[in-house]
Nucleic acid binder design. Structure first.
Lengths: 126, 126
DNA sequence: TATTTATATAAATATATACTCATATTATAA
DNA sequence: TTATAATATGAGTATATATTTATATAAATA
């Protein structure tokens, strides 16, 4: 596996607004106006993120009159994202919270003391 | 789909060094020393990233004597990452390059002029 | 052809993230 | 018990990324 290449893709997906733009487009073909309307992000912000997605070859653009339509280069990406969504929804809550911090170590304990992990109730193994 | 939650996970995976640490651990159980040895990252850097992965509930830690062993909380993540790897390896080269910039628009042209996209050879559609 | 609509872009700013440095903790060995 | 090995952590710094601001381009319309 190539960590560098993957990290680039993950980094691009690792922004909630960019993801919302991607999910908004889905497997369809959307004009920038539609995206702005659906997300309520500013025009410049949408264009900024669309450029990033386009330059990463995740989206392709096509002008039609005054409008520019965007769609996925490879729609399989959506299926992968969907699988990640299932995975995330099964994860411990912490990563889904504002200040996610899995209690590993949990409050009052320390990783160095041997007891941590919300679900494992680990104890020091000698 | 929850863009915010997914973005958090993608963001954590969107760092090549963190990914290399994850791939190094794989479905095994690795001491920090092993990770340092395999990656040749500094001890502090490895600990820094391990903390991030641990606090996101991606990794769990277990002390055994002086050593602390790390392993995936849910090994299915590796399968997902592997699928992403396949996807990335099929992508146009640009995202895999140092300065990835899909020629959309390509050099000399402009997205506004209607011709861009390495593989689509798009022309203006009226 | 002047104006408006749709969109892009460069540059400035704000914010978040990665990395390093110095130091602390725990366990083990001498 | 002291020293050493394994690891963690807080804080500072460097770097990258997101967002906004101001402006530009292209097409459509008046």
């Amino acid at each position: 596996m190539n960590a560098e290449h993957m990290a680039k893709l993950f980094k691009i997906l690792g922004d909630d607004k960019r993801l919302r733009i991607l999910l908004c487009i889905g497997k369809n073909r959307c004009s920038v106006s539609e995206i702005i309307g659906n997300t309520s992000f500013s025009q410049t912000l949408v264009s900024f993120h669309l450029r990033i997605l386009r330059e990463a070859c995740i989206l392709k653009a096509e002008r039609q009159g005054a409008f520019i339509y965007y769609q996925l280069v490879d729609a399989e990406l959506l299926d992968l994202v969907s699988k990640f969504n299932e995975f995330v929804s099964k994860m411990p809550l912490e990563i889904r919270e504002e200040e996610y911090s899995c209690p590993c170590p949990p409050t009052g304990n320390n990783i160095l003391t041997g007891r941590y992990g919300k679900f494992s109730n680990l104890v020091l193994k000698k």
